[in-house]
Nucleic acid binder design. Structure first.
Length: 849
DNA sequence: GCAAGGTC
């Protein structure tokens, strides 16, 4: 038997299809797809199926001094048991094995991991094939010329694994232990995340150190034959045009001069044509950047692209390549779109061009093509809104890369008004070119009429504007990712995760991200004691070392030994400063949680966490001072920079994904609740208007007075609002109400529940929101909630979720327990009967996990 | 439980 091993299932399936001429069949072993035809089996890994770690005796942070990790062994352990089992089972029966992982360094290492797992089972020959895209020609060609694994290249990857683990783990443990931070709130550092964090911290330092300068700008409105346009005042400085006037006296003088002008004489007119080139093919970073301009976060952009890739609509979304491969035939791909209701006209017009010449970027890699549509077009209804938006972006981006450049005409008019120089820059789109198929870039024109030299124009108005220089701007997520890429930090697959990790670790918050005080302290501590870990030079050196290993100039052991020695010296320097560093980190973490003075004792109020895990505001003077304030029970609280004027407390924001909201000053919220009376709207359905003890004559009596509770609109001290029973806590009946806006009680009554309809009048703009009967409203809310939970199922697309729902398959909780990929695979294209059967298996625990 | 890199 012959065995082929690829990096991922998708590649295995496509290679099987090519090599078997479409005859391959699929079966599953331990939940892993195995493709078979004739005497051949093909299986896909899931990237690395083994990972590096320390031996178990190093596992307990408190038993081991971080410095001991510097010289600790590093071992490999399977991380994907089912895949390892499947691979080894197949390898045991194989007479020949071919490694067909991705054609890059990490692919070589993944290949070597498969090689070693297979070697435990067999002595059969193991070859390596390399191809730059999974197409008929390339794959057949590669398989007819098998090569050998490049163990040096794989060793280069292993050096990275070992060094990243040693440095990351040892220094992370050192910082966490010195600050006495255990559990989930450890303080992490790493070769990529820490320079990324320093990038953000450095920008924040620039912003804080920024000292604004005053300046003035002057404008005049000019008129030609009733055609008005704006011109800006400028003067010459060292032969360059300058618009900003830095002295107020100069600005006032120029303004008075300009105000005295009735007309302006045109001194020069310059026309220029400018070619506006279409975009280069999409790599991951440029894709994320474009997706952010339609409102998607980096994380969201990647998860949506992965869905579209798995469904077969776009190519692999993790790529550095910006050059389409030779086997991509743009005309054939455009042809796929000509009948489409939305893209058809654009595809036709692109095909009508004389020659189709795609743009190309600088980076040409061998593992994956730039992101482009596959030609299999989804029905719009099958995609969520975000998915469709991304799909259209990828299609249109491909269109743009094969479209013509746009042509602009720039018109610059310089005029003199009473001795003041004025200039106006106009631009006009002559040839829309690629903009016709690509609406994501601005085509805004600036109108300046045709004028001639020597012509006299009317000056209708003069304006002066006082301005200040602005600090540099914080970078958004996609800008940060571009910055990481330009510095060779991280990879196409990890950069967006790095940003996400900084959020998770409490190092950054908001969007665009801002560093917390903890982040400033971590970067400061690193700069002072272990400069390398925040220095991008560490990556540069590692890259050089890896290249040397790959070229056979040095080896894994020499490189890791040297790295251990450097790390050891860092620990010698750290040794005496442990207390100091820990104290600084602890103070900063506390500062991130500090709201302001306690009204009872004057110590600080802090965001704290109860033993049950819920958040509240408590005094740093505890246990002497027992002052507390409640916080909302959804989300993670963060302390903002806004201060409450009345109480001097920082406002609190609750982070809960798309349900994030600003809670404000917790003291104000509590006071508001204390000052607001409950508003009764009817009897409690649980305990009000119920039968009580029979009366003396034996007939049951309905009471709505004694004993029976009423429903009331209540405002709670934690800021939330609800409809609840006045007998709380004896009766716990309650219905939630929205957090924002004012609730009004209307005259209308619910037929079913007898309660008045409610109206939420938003404090912002927008129509009032008709909640209706609070009981009916809550029931509807629950239904919507359940529906969206199905959609949110990790890894399962909306389409699959619909099928699951249609087939009446089990509760969300059951599905959660199961492997989402397995669910997706199982459900695609199978009958309802099979779905029911499968549900039975899930219930029996056969498929779960 | 630590990193970064694959992949889902």
């Amino acid at each position: 038997m012959e065995l082929i091993v690829t990096e991922k299932d998708n590649a295995a399936r496509r290679i099987a299809e090519i090599l078997s001429d479409g005859s391959a069949s699929t079966n599953r072993q331990f939940g892993v797809n195995v493709y078979r035809w004739g005497d051949t089996r093909c299986v896909g890994l899931s990237g690395h199926v083994v990972g590096v770690d320390f031996p178990p005796e190093y596992a307990d942070w408190r038993d081991v001094q971080p410095v001991e990790l510097v010289d600790a062994d590093v071992v490999k352990m399977p991380t994907q048991e089912n895949i390892v089992r499947t691979l080894q089972g197949l390898a045991a029966d194989a007479d020949r094995i071919t490694i067909a992982t991705d054609y890059d360094r990490e692919g070589e290492l993944i290949g070597k991991e498969a090689y070693e797992l297979a070697r435990e089972e067999t002595d059969a020959p193991i070859d390596r094939v390399r191809f730059s895209s999974i197409t008929e020609n390339e794959v057949r060609e590669a398989f007819s010329n098998p090569e050998a694994l490049d163990f040096d290249l794989a060793a280069a990857g292993e050096a990275r694994q070992v060094i990243d683990l040693l440095w990351g783990a040892a220094l992370t443990r050192f910082l966490s232990l010195s600050a006495k931070q255990f559990g989930e709130d450890f303080i992490s550092v790493g070769r990529v995340q820490s320079p990324a964090l320093k990038l953000i911290v450095d920008r924040e330092r620039e912003i804080r150190a920024f000292d604004p300068d005053d300046y003035w700008e002057l404008f005049a409105d000019l008129l030609k034959d009733g055609d008005a346009f704006e011109a800006q005042y400028f003067y010459l400085e060292d032969g360059n045009e300058a618009e900003r006037v830095w002295e107020e006296a100069d600005a006032t003088e120029a303004f008075e001069q300009l105000q005295g002008a009735r007309e302006a004489i045109v001194e020069s007119v310059r026309r220029r044509r400018r070619t506006d080139e279409p975009p280069e093919p999409f790599n991951t970073t440029q894709y994320i950047s474009s997706a952010s301009s339609v409102g998607l976060s980096a994380q969201k952009a990647m998860s949506v692209a992965e869905e579209l890739y798995t469904a077969g609509y776009i190519t692999y979304p993790r790529t550095d390549n910006t050059v389409y491969p030779d086997d991509l035939d743009p005309e054939a791909l455009l042809d796929e779109f000509t009948d489409h209701y939305l893209f058809g006209d654009d595809a036709d017009s692109l095909l009508s061009a004389d020659a189709i010449e795609p743009t190309a970027g600088d980076e040409e890699t061998t593992d994956h093509p730039p992101i482009h549509p596959t030609g299999e077009i989804p029905a719009r209804d099958d995609l969520s809104e975000d998915e469709w938006e991304v799909y259209e972006l990828v299609v249109r981006h491909f269109f743009a890369t094969v479209a013509d450049p746009a042509e602009w005409e720039h018109l610059k008019v310089v005029a003199d008004a009473n001795g003041c120089s004025l200039k106006a820059n106009g631009k006009r789109l002559l040839e829309p070119g690629y903009h016709e198929v690509y609406p994501y870039r601005s085509t805004a024109e600036n109108h300046v009429p045709d004028v001639d030299e020597g012509e006299i124009l009317d000056v209708t108005e003069a304006r002066i504007e006082a301005k200040q220089t602005q600090p540099p701007r914080r970078r958004g997520q996609s800008r940060l990712i571009e910055e990481l890429e330009s510095r060779s930090l991280g990879t196409k697959s990890t950069r967006h995760h790095t940003i996400e990790k900084l959020y998770d670790r409490g190092y950054i918050e908001s969007d665009p991200p801002r560093p917390t005080k903890l982040a400033m302290a971590v970067v400061e501590a690193a700069e002072k004691f272990a400069d390398r870990i925040v220095d991008e030079g560490m990556t540069a050196k590692l890259e050089a070392d890896m290249n040397a290993i790959a070229d056979g100039e040095t080896d894994l052991e020499d490189v890791t030994d040297e790295s251990r020695a450097i790390l050891g010296r860092i620990f010698e320097e750290l040794h005496d400063s442990r207390e100091e560093i820990g104290e600084h980190l602890r103070e900063s973490m506390k500062a991130d949680r500090t709201l302001g003075p306690c009204p009872d004792c004057g110590e600080s109020l802090l965001v704290r966490r109860s033993r049950q895990g819920s958040y509240f505001v408590g005094c740093d003077g505890f246990p002497e001072c027992r002052y507390t304030l409640p916080l909302p029970n959804t989300g993670e609280p963060t302390v903002t920079d806004d201060t409450c004027d009345e109480h001097g407390l920082e406002h609190v924001k609750m982070l809960a994904g798309r349900n994030t909201f600003v809670h404000g000053c917790p003291q104000c919220k509590a006071d508001e609740a204390d000052e607001t009376d409950d508003r009764i709207i009817g009897p409690c359905p649980e305990c009000g208007g119920v039968e009580t003890e029979p009366s003396e004559n034996g007939t049951p009596e309905v009471s709505d007075a004694e004993g029976g509770g009423d429903l009331a609109i209540k405002r709670l001290r934690n800021g939330s609002r609800l409809v609840g029973c006045t007998r709380y806590p004896e009766c716990e009946y309650s219905l939630p109400l929205p957090r924002r806006g004012e609730v009004e009680v209307t005259e209308e009554t619910c037929d079913e529940h007898g309660l008045p309809h409610l109206l939420v009048v938003d404090d912002g703009e927008g129509e009032p929101w008709e909640l209706g009967c609070p009981i009916c409203n809550y029931a509807e809310y629950r239904e919507r909630q359940a529906a969206s939970e199905i959609e949110d199922l990790d890894g399962v697309g909306a389409k699959t979720a619909e099928k699951l729902a249609a087939a009446g398959i089990g509760s969300i909780d059951d599905l959660r327990g199961a492997d989402a990929a397995a669910i997706a695979d199982e459900v695609q294209g199978v009958s309802e009967d099979r779905l029911r059967e499968w549900q039975a298996e899930v219930n029996a625990g056969a498929v779960a996990d």
